[in-house]
Simulated scan of single mutants.
Amino acid sequence: MGPRGAPLLAVALVLGLCVLVEGQKPSPCQCSRMTPKNRKNCGFSGISSDECFDRGCCFNSSVPGVPWCFQPLPKEESEQCVMEVSTRKNCGFPGISPKECASRQCCFSDSIPEVPWCFYPQSVQDCHY
Rank of each mutant, 00 (worst) to 15 (best):
W68M: 11
P72N: 06
C69T: 06
P26M: 09
C18Q: 14
L17M: 13
F70Q: 01
G16T: 11
C42G: 11
A10Q: 11
P72L: 03
E76Q: 15
P7C: 10
C101S: 08
L20Y: 05
K75Q: 10
F59H: 09
C58T: 00
P36A: 06
D110N: 14
G5P: 00
A102T: 10
G2T: 14
S103A: 13
V85D: 09
R88E: 03
I96Y: 06
V66R: 04
N90M: 04
G5Y: 07
S27A: 12
C107L: 07
C101A: 08
G56H: 06
K40F: 06
E100S: 11
R55D: 09
S49P: 04
S86N: 09
F93I: 03
C42T: 03
S61E: 15
G23A: 15
P116N: 08
V66M: 02
Q24M: 10
C81G: 05
I47M: 12
T87Q: 09
G43D: 07
C52R: 05
S78C: 03
Q30K: 00
T35N: 12
F119M: 04
I47F: 02
I47G: 05
V14E: 04
C107A: 07
G16R: 11
L20S: 12
D126I: 02
V82A: 00
P67I: 08
E100H: 10
Q105P: 01
R104N: 11
N41F: 01
R39H: 06
Y129I: 02
K37S: 15
S123W: 01
I112F: 09
S103C: 02
S45N: 12
T87D: 10
S27Y: 04
Q105E: 15
S32L: 03
P36Q: 07
P121M: 09
C58A: 03
S45A: 12
K89M: 09
K37L: 12
I112L: 14
G95L: 03
L15P: 05
A102Q: 12
Q71Y: 03
A6I: 14
F44D: 07
T87S: 10
P94D: 08
Y129Q: 10
T35V: 03
R33I: 04
K75T: 05
T35M: 02
C29R: 00
L8S: 08
L15N: 04
C106K: 07
L17S: 11
T87Y: 02
S49H: 02
P98Q: 09
R4A: 15
L15A: 15
Q125I: 12
G2C: 05
F93T: 07
C69M: 07
S62R: 15
Y120C: 11
E77V: 15
P98N: 05
V11G: 08
